[in-house]
């Protein structure tokens, strides 16, 4: 707790802004949150209640009423605003969590891995269902195959206006460049 207490605090005149980094398991969400965050990334238990699903869904699993998961969380203080970065799981069973998390969020950076591009479909579905603005960043691994942009766009069924970037989630500068591209895209959508 001592290290936690000595960590820098923000002042209340900062506007809290929520950004989501989403992607399938193992794509590099935690890595990117770490690369961007000024604090050691935190996580806490999320309790996903079954509220909103049919009671019938619990048939046979009576003793199991909740599912837990954890979201990685980081913070980046900028002049006037404080960015809260959430690394959110991409499986469709987290729909309820997504609806809540997406509320008030500025946008989503969807991380994809070209070695298993189909893992990203569920995430993109969640993001689109949440009606939230997003950009896609391919986290480049050493053995990632290089596909032309067009092929990737087609595979992911992306709108021509949606930014498609390549990044290195470990590199703070690269991670920041992806966020900048996302925010620029959101701004373009707003002013157009």
């Amino acid at each position: 707790m001592a290290s936690a207490l000595s960590e820098s605090r923000i002042s209340v005149d900062h506007i809290p802004v929520k950004l989501i980094i989403a992607g399938p398991f193992g794509v590099g969400k935690t890595t990117m949150v770490s690369a961007l965050s000024e604090i050691k990334p935190l996580n806490t238990e999320e309790v996903l209640t079954q509220a909103g699903t049919l009671v019938d869904d619990l048939t046979g699993v009576n003793e199991k009423t909740t599912t837990t998961t954890a979201i990685d969380f980081g913070r980046l203080t900028l002049p006037g605003v404080v960015l809260y970065l959430f690394g959110a799981p991409g499986q469709t069973r987290f729909q309820v969590l997504w609806e809540e998390l997406a509320r008030g969020a500025l946008g989503v950076l969807v991380l994809a891995d070209t070695r298993r591009i189909d893992d990203s479909f569920a995430v993109l579905d969640l993001v689109e269902n949440a009606g939230i603005r997003y950009a896609v960043a391919v986290n480049h691994f050493p053995d990632s195959p290089d596909y032309p942009d067009e092929a990737l766009r087609q595979a992911l069924d992306l709108d021509p206006r949606t930014p498609l970037l390549v990044c290195d989630a470990r590199d703070p500068a690269s991670a920041r460049a992806s966020l900048i591209a996302l925010v620029e895209h959101i701004k373009e959508l707003m002013v157009s």
Binding site: V12, I15, P16, V17, K18, L78, P79, G80, V81, L83, G104, L106, G107, R133, R176, L179, I180, V183, E184, I186, K187, M190, V191
Partner: peptide, 25 residues
């Protein structure tokens, strides 16, 4: 408490703050 902005969509002013802040890093 200080609540995050309630607005449905993002606010242009906030976007500009985020952009200039990220670029200055």
């Amino acid at each position: 408490t200080r609540d995050p902005p309630r607005a449905e969509g993002p606010d242009l002013e906030i976007l500009e703050l985020v952009l200039s802040g990220l670029r200055a890093l």
